[in-house]
Design a protein around this nucleic acid. Structure first.
Length: 589
DNA sequence: TAAGTCACG
DNA sequence: ACGTACGTGACTTAT
């Protein structure tokens, strides 16, 4: 039976593959069984390590995998899957580096219908009108959930075969739609290549200095205890500083502080902005502010990162979600390595624990002002284009225009304002939003925006035309043709329509930046491979790539990586990437 | 599970 | 008159 299927997949043009495993954690998952589908309506399941009372004897796992390995590692044998990056890890856990993954239905869906769900069950229902066995019906949920190796083999076979078969069916619907559109096909191919690079990054992991984090945790813990005692003293009673509800009672009822703003659900807000304001008149809010920020550091970073490192290697392996962010960005989870602190000195210490092994260093290469450069390209605004072409500090140049002063006469306050305006433009701001952010009158903010648009009329025109385009087409697109559908831009109520307009303005810029860094990741990895470099790509943080670099390759990396990143596209503005190198992530900046 | 808050680009 | 800057993930408390 197994031999028959082996012959079948060897001969097939394209084979859908699905793995069943012991864990959703890709680095730890062990294979339990796998299924193949070559022809619609036909699939085979190979049970390997099902383990329950009276489970039938199964084929020996390692022998089966050894027989499959040549086919799996043959790049000429095309494979297809749903969420292929996960399956790559699973096979890698058994020493198999799969080659020839030609398609991933999850990424097909992400490119064609980014605003819809991308799970196989949803895809099968939407595109081929099929429903199947629910994973929770098979394995239960919550504390009662069993592992896949405890699932009855007959049921497991039905489930897994259905998955392979549905994957093939969905592919037969979505792939022709991608083939029919050159731009979407280009984006899909970029996603497929990115998927492999992301697998490599995840597999590499990042070395963590666990003892350093433990020291930081201890110090933070001491300071947090001290702050708690001080807060109880001021409040006149102990309370839970982590509870916004209890905080509200102490602040607003007991101590009579004024309510500054309400949360969406109507509760009295105690967020950072409110605490800053109240700190002007009361002693307690400052204690809370410091307590909040230190608890965040300890609870989310210094305590957690070391726990998540694999004991054997001391490395943490994040998971990049490639089909979550609607703009085309990645997201990172378990742990999220895209929100490691950087804005405060205490926070930055966490980055000192992101290290390289002996003989290597950390390099961090990031795009300079990538979204504003894209705004210049998309809008074609002459003044903004010149600012970049001339290599100016763009916030300074903006300030000079808006405040009508010479470049060298711009004050730091004026530059700060200009920076907030520039960010606001990327986000589709209103005068109200700008005013709130700068802490000025709405009228004054409106005047700045007017002035900006007088000086940069191309930007104003671009913003307007983008919304017009979105209303007409129900989508917007990046420079490379990645689409974001915005059904609510015409339907929907007032606020939702406005929100869709802001998305329409933001998505082409954020999305083009995402396209560019994906192009960079793929390009840089290709060159590293072609030159057989030992440098490893270990993180992506939206406009930044981080590498672990052997000392012998430092000078090559310093010169070549920024050059490769700047060269991935030819826009109306030059792209600029800058690189820093150091013993840890903090020092590499 | 939702709400509130806060870390990042 | 209304709500009010884009995109994420994780933690804690309360329900």
């Amino acid at each position: 039976m197994f031999e028959t299927w082996l012959a079948k997949i060897e001969a097939a043009e394209l084979v859908a593959v699905d793995t069943e495993t012991t864990s959703l954690d890709e680095m730890l998952a062990q294979i339990v069984g796998l299924s193949f589908s070559v022809t619609p309506g036909e699939a085979a399941y190979i049970p390997l390590t099902h383990d329950y009372p009276d489970a039938p004897v199964q084929l020996p796992r390692d022998e089966v995998l050894a027989r499959l390995k040549p086919w799996l590692e043959n790049p000429a044998k095309a494979k297809l899957g749903q969420h292929v990056k996960y399956d790559r890890h699973v096979f890698a856990n058994h020493g198999i580096e799969v080659q020839g993954y030609a398609h991933d239905t999850m990424l097909q869906s992400y490119v064609l219908e980014v605003h819809k769900p991308h799970g196989l069950a949803s895809l099968a229902e939407r595109h081929v009108g099929r429903s199947g066995i629910n994973y929770e019906d098979l394995c239960g949920k919550g504390a009662h959930q069993i592992k896949f190796n405890q699932v009855d083999i007959v049921k497991a076979a039905e489930y897994s075969c259905e998955d392979s078969d549905q994957t093939l069916d969905v592919h037969r619907v979505l792939w022709p739609r991608l083939q029919a559109d050159d731009k979407l096909r280009f984006i899909y191919e970029l996603e497929m290549k990115s998927s492999e690079t992301l697998y490599r990054i995840e597999r590499n992991g990042v070395l963590i200095d666990a003892p350093m984090l433990a020291t930081q945790s201890h110090e933070l813990g001491q300071r947090i205890l001290q702050l708690e005692a001080e807060a109880y003293e001021i409040a006149g009673q102990p309370f839970n500083l982590g509870s916004p509800k209890q905080l509200g009672e102490i602040f607003f009822d007991k101590l009579g502080m004024p309510v500054i703003k309400k949360t969406p659900s109507g509760a009295r807000s105690t967020d950072e902005e409110v605490l800053e304001k109240l700190a002007e008149d009361y002693p307690l809010p400052a204690k809370l502010l410091e307590h909040r920020s230190l608890s965040k550091l300890k609870g989310t970073y210094t305590d957690k990162l070391a726990q998540l490192a694999l004991p054997r290697t001391g490395r943490v392996h994040t998971h990049y979600a490639q089909a979550v962010a609607v703009t085309g960005r990645l997201s990172s989870n378990d742990p999220n390595l895209q929100n490691i602190p950087v804005r405060t000195p205490e926070g930055r210490r966490v980055r000192e624990a992101f290290v390289a092994p002996a003989g290597s260093v950390i390099a961090s290469a990031d795009y300079s002002q990538i979204e504003l450069r894209i705004m210049a390209h998309l809008s074609g605004d002459e003044a903004l284009l010149s600012a970049f072409t001339d290599g100016l500090d763009v916030h300074r140049a903006t300030a000079a225009e808006v405040f009508g002063v010479a470049l060298d006469q711009v004050s730091s306050e004026q530059r700060r304002y200009a920076k907030v305006i520039n960010f606001g433009l990327i986000y589709g701001m209103s005068s109200f939003g700008l005013a709130r952010n700068l802490g000025i009158e709405t009228k004054a903010a409106a005047a700045y925006i007017d002035k900006y648009f007088q000086r940069y009329p191309g930007v104003k025109n671009y913003m307007e035309q983008t919304v017009v385009f979105a209303r007409k087409n129900q989508f917007v697109e990046t420079v490379f043709g990645r689409r974001l559908y915005l059904p609510e831009i015409n339907g929907g109520n007032g606020p939702r329509k406005k929100a869709a307009e802001r998305q329409a303005i933001n998505a082409p810029m954020q999305g083009t930046a995402a396209d560019l860094i994906k192009l960079s990741m793929v390009k840089v990895q290709d060159v590293l491979d072609a030159e057989k470099r030992a440098t490893k790509m270990i993180m992506q943080v939206h406009d930044e790539l981080v590498f672990e670099v052997p000392e012998a390759e430092v000078e090559w990396v310093r010169h070549e990586i920024p050059r490769l990143m700047a060269g991935v596209a030819d826009l109306q503005v030059p792209l600029l990437a800058e690189i820093g190198i150091g013993p840890n992530w903090e020092k590499a900046h």
